[in-house]
Design a protein around this nucleic acid. Sequence first.
DNA 1: TCATGTGAAAACGTTCACAGCA
DNA 2: TGCTGTGAACGTTTTCACATGA
Lengths: 239, 239
Amino acid sequence: MVGDIGEVQARRIPEATVLRLPVYQRILAEYLRSEQTTVSSEQLANLARVGAAKVRKDLSLLGSFGTRGTGYDTAFLMAQIDHALGVDQDWPVAIVGIGNLGRALANSEGFSSRGFRVAYCFDLRGEVVGTKIGGVTVRHVDELAGLSASERPSIGVVSTPAVAAQEVADAFVEIGVRSILNFAPRVLQVPPEVHLRYVDLSIELQVMSFFESRRREAAVTARLPLVGAVGVSRAPEPA
Amino acid sequence: MVGDIGEVQARRIPEATVLRLPVYQRILAEYLRSEQTTVSSEQLANLARVGAAKVRKDLSLLGSFGTRGTGYDTAFLMAQIDHALGVDQDWPVAIVGIGNLGRALANSEGFSSRGFRVAYCFDLRGEVVGTKIGGVTVRHVDELAGLSASERPSIGVVSTPAVAAQEVADAFVEIGVRSILNFAPRVLQVPPEVHLRYVDLSIELQVMSFFESRRREAAVTARLPLVGAVGVSRAPEPA
DNA sequence: TCATGTGAAAACGTTCACAGCA
DNA sequence: TGCTGTGAACGTTTTCACATGA
């Protein structure tokens, strides 16, 4: 009954799934490169480090693209995910802050492959403004505020030092950018309708740290019973 | 029958909470800088863009550190979160791949502030090996495999081009690193006990893209009833 | 009085187990 | 036969609402 034609599916995709889709995408790209035309939920699951059922649930939310007994068509599935993510549309990106990080981002393979386009690069240092980076000329950051609605980038990337980040975010908001990716280690204040994501080493390291120390503790408590001292009687963790 | 005798803490911290803690941490740092000694769950909630109840739940999992009617002591709460995350321990980090990205990571403010330490930098290009970066001399990547157990970094960072990423991950695993942060746009295969996180622009942009296109669709469907005809009739965007 | 801390309820996401189909 | 697609069970996370205590 779902099976209508032009009708758009409109099944709601949970955020948790959205966060996994790019990973599947990347795996599919790998399979495509090795000319494997078909892929199973279990293969995807192994590489994505999740359960096979989860993969099937995720993909079934986009539609029924698999073939029972066979798996999914690699290229077709990729196209479907691209579509679900909206990656088949044009998303001009502006990068503010062309230091090491900004340069890495602008040259990144994240752009070359898909529908993303480095539309603008901004900085404020005289020795950087005017230089070219991957075909785009770096402009002075003051010009950001002068962009008209038709020139407005869809996504704004902040890769400045922390002290400048809020100012840049304000400028993005001012010209109507509603998706901001912040690589600077600073909390930003933007209106509620603006989509904001933090990406940085400091956050990631802290998360890693938590799991590492949990592991340390586990190792300690798992060792205790072997000692036979004070108390406890914990079964040895079965690897 | 988890029984438990162990006494102290042992309240389980859900992963969802762990992912938010570094954000609270960052907000607290900001308040500390402005010498605000006390902070409420609502203040934290506003800046972290989550509900106040969620903040209180999260923090109450670490213990009862607040003062009713007043809020939390900024510095004390920071210390508690640091402890819960394990950030008050020593976590030597190795960075492999000293291009623009690696350089940005090594110099990043993520290290300066907390217990993380750039213990090693590796690359394979002659013009990079031997140079110093933030006090650490870049070594040839071949030396990575020669690190002894006592020299082993806790966290391995992969910031090479995609083609080299798997090889580097293998080397990390080989010497016993069990937490890998991958900034290269490539899916890595590592044993299940290794903690692996992907951080990269390509993934983030795809996620952003999804939310932007969802917004586009919402805008269209929300406008349709108002339009009543084929054409448009766009309300002036209220800045 | 004001903001925390927390049970209990609701929402959400994951896993299971198997029916359905190539 | 083999693998997808999916209801139903389960587990986790969020939200609510208010008792608690400074």
